[in-house]
Computed example of a mutant assay.
Amino acid sequence: MKVTLTNSAKYGGEFYIKGQEIEVDPKHVLGLIADRVISSDTEVPEVPGETDINKMNMAQLKDYAEQNSIDLGEAAKKDEILEKIKAAGE
């Protein structure tokens, strides 16, 4: 999928500059958002066989974090929990 970089970054062994549009593997989108390489409002594609955390409720998110050893810290709101999970690269 094509994305526009919000910061310069290295991806796939190549260095790209801010504002450049590049092709990325859909399964890397969450990690790129967490690393602030692409915009947080980028649509996260569904990858077959992977869980869409954006559609989970609070209980499911907390279970997911626990199962994946993700420390939620003081996160109490859904958006905060989602941000912690995304930051963990999940």
Rank of each mutant, 00 (worst) to 15 (best):
K18Q: 13
G12V: 08
Y64A: 04
K27N: 09
E66D: 15
N54E: 08
Q60T: 02
E74Y: 13
E46A: 08
P45R: 07
E66P: 05
L72Q: 10
G12Q: 03
K77R: 15
Y16H: 15
I33F: 08
I81G: 10
K18Y: 01
S40C: 02
V47F: 08
K2W: 11
S8L: 03
Y11G: 08
I53R: 02
P48G: 03
E46W: 06
A9N: 03
E14H: 05
E23Q: 06
R36E: 15
P45W: 02
S40H: 09
I85P: 01
D25K: 10
D41P: 01
V37W: 01
D79E: 15
L32E: 08
A9V: 11
L32K: 10
P48N: 09
A75L: 09
M1A: 08
L72E: 05
E80T: 03
K27H: 12
N57M: 00
S39E: 02
A87K: 14
V47R: 07
I17Y: 10
G12D: 00
N7K: 15
A59E: 15
I22R: 04
L82Q: 09
Q20D: 14
L61P: 01
K62G: 04
I38F: 09
E50Q: 11
V29I: 15
Q67D: 15
T42A: 04
H28E: 12
I53S: 02
S40P: 08
E14I: 14
T51Q: 09
G12M: 05
Y16T: 08
L61D: 03
A75T: 09
E23A: 04
P45L: 07
S39N: 11
K55L: 03
E46K: 13
Y11A: 00
H28N: 15
R36F: 06
D41Q: 07
E43G: 05
I70W: 00
D52G: 03
D71M: 13
I53L: 03
D79R: 14
V3N: 01
V29E: 02
